Computed example of a mutant assay.
Amino acid sequence: MRRFLVMIVMVLLPAIAAAAPVRIKDLADFDGVRGNDLVGYGLVVGLDGTGDGFRNAPFTEELLAGLLERLGVNVTDEALRSRNVAAVVVTATLPPFARSGSRIDVSVSTIGDAKSLLGGTLVMTPLKAADGNIYAVAQGSIIASGAAIEGEAARVVEGVPTSGKIPVGARVEREVEFDFASIQNIRVALRNADFTTATRIEDAINRDFDRRVAITQDSGTVLVEFRQLGDVNPARVLGRIENLTVEPEDRAKVVIDHKSGTIVIGERVRISRVAVSQGALTLSVSEAPMVSQPNPFARGETVTVPRTVAELRNEPGIGFAEVAGETSLSDLVEGLNALGVRPREMIDILKSIHAAGALHADLVIE
């Protein structure tokens, strides 16, 4: 018998403003101080028969032939049938101010029908940015994130063996030109835009420097003008700013994740006066196949006749219950628990309260 039930986990998070002040570096980014995405197309060798099949992935054969020809091996008109190589896409992030010769981590993922990258080695692969220029070159042994075991009639896979990483597997060959020391101003970009938080960052910076060097431009941007400080080193100024602390504000939110059955309710959530009634619906399906066979010495054959028993049961639920106005999070949880509401019913109740306009928070359903 299969029962269709939803298990819900509810997480109650306190408001961030009730916690200790947070550093600016944990709330915002500095405009221009960011990484750059890199991507490349390469070849992994040394696989134990788990690579691409050239019939299904002809681009792997072309890539292998090109590599061998560059190494001085003539493979013209040769039929390559190796299962020890795989075509992959290599990705990485070039950190801000990365210098030539420094090393960065890379991720490797198959694009053909390879079954595993365990034991493979990535051959020298150029990594390009959005402008088409090569900024790094990757090469090295792959650490795959899974394992696969295969027999004649079964295959067991743990994790994702078709992708992996190479720690410090790429060397930076080209630097991103950015004269940071000559900038006159910089923008502080909040990760979660909020006017209150932005003005608090402005006040904290101006108070620390004892002059008006920061101006709030919008809910997500605070402009810092270095010329107000005279001849200074921008790097030292930002190092001082990013360690200042403020108390950030956040919007009241209720986040519902149907896939994992998780509900996250912020402490700032408020509910107006509303009446709630909840019923419980259970659907059960069971299979009881019957075997039908002919009488002795009669012509015919034995067949299995499927038989499905489906039951839809409406279990007694709670009657109408009143939730008082301006209910806080703790009052809401306490009231719903007292009413006997099960966790799997919480999602429907919250969505209905939001539809009635009584839930004063952003409802985010993922």
Score class of each variant (00 low, 15 high):
residue 230 G to Q: 10
residue 339 L to F: 09
residue 226 F to P: 12
residue 23 R to I: 01
residue 20 A to I: 03
residue 3 R to N: 14
residue 67 L to K: 14
residue 333 V to Y: 03
residue 335 G to D: 02
residue 11 V to Q: 13
residue 358 A to F: 00
residue 117 L to I: 04
residue 317 G to E: 00
residue 73 V to G: 15
residue 348 D to P: 10
residue 146 G to D: 06
residue 237 V to E: 01
residue 18 A to H: 09
residue 340 G to N: 11
residue 65 A to N: 14
residue 99 R to T: 12
residue 117 L to H: 03
residue 226 F to K: 15
residue 309 V to C: 09
residue 254 V to K: 10
residue 164 G to V: 04
residue 211 R to M: 08
residue 126 P to A: 09
residue 243 N to H: 12
residue 342 R to W: 05
residue 6 V to M: 13
residue 360 H to D: 06
residue 218 D to E: 06
residue 361 A to V: 01
residue 146 G to A: 01
residue 174 R to W: 00
residue 9 V to F: 10
residue 85 V to I: 04
residue 242 E to G: 10
residue 260 S to M: 11
residue 215 I to E: 14
residue 144 A to M: 04
residue 131 D to W: 03
residue 4 F to R: 15
residue 29 D to A: 12
residue 235 A to S: 13
residue 126 P to V: 04
residue 41 Y to S: 14
residue 65 A to E: 11
residue 139 Q to A: 10
residue 286 S to Y: 09
residue 38 L to P: 14
residue 114 A to L: 02
residue 269 V to Y: 05
residue 351 K to Q: 11
residue 17 A to L: 11
residue 224 V to R: 15
residue 259 K to P: 12
residue 354 H to K: 12
residue 30 F to Y: 07
residue 282 T to I: 08
residue 80 L to R: 06
residue 252 A to C: 04
residue 289 P to E: 08
residue 34 R to L: 11
residue 258 H to K: 15
residue 197 T to V: 07
residue 12 L to T: 14
residue 64 L to Q: 10
residue 62 E to A: 15
residue 176 V to K: 12
residue 137 V to N: 12
residue 48 D to R: 15
residue 217 Q to T: 12
residue 197 T to A: 03
residue 341 V to N: 03
residue 319 G to F: 02
residue 148 A to E: 10
residue 19 A to P: 11
residue 215 I to N: 12
residue 132 G to A: 10
residue 258 H to T: 15
residue 334 E to L: 14
residue 53 G to F: 01
residue 290 M to G: 12
residue 11 V to C: 00
residue 230 G to Y: 04
residue 97 F to Y: 09
residue 366 E to H: 02
residue 207 R to K: 15
residue 162 T to H: 00
residue 228 Q to I: 05
residue 202 E to Q: 12
residue 79 A to Q: 14
residue 105 D to I: 04
residue 304 T to E: 05
residue 130 A to K: 09
residue 200 R to D: 01
residue 118 L to V: 08
residue 218 D to G: 08
residue 126 P to Y: 06
residue 359 L to M: 02
residue 179 D to E: 07
residue 162 T to L: 01
residue 108 V to D: 05
residue 155 R to F: 01
residue 325 G to Q: 09
residue 30 F to E: 06
residue 335 G to V: 11
residue 232 V to P: 02
residue 331 D to I: 14
residue 164 G to Q: 00
residue 230 G to H: 07
residue 292 S to Y: 00
residue 350 L to V: 02
residue 76 T to R: 13
residue 73 V to Y: 08
residue 14 P to F: 04
residue 50 T to A: 05
residue 68 L to I: 08
residue 42 G to S: 09
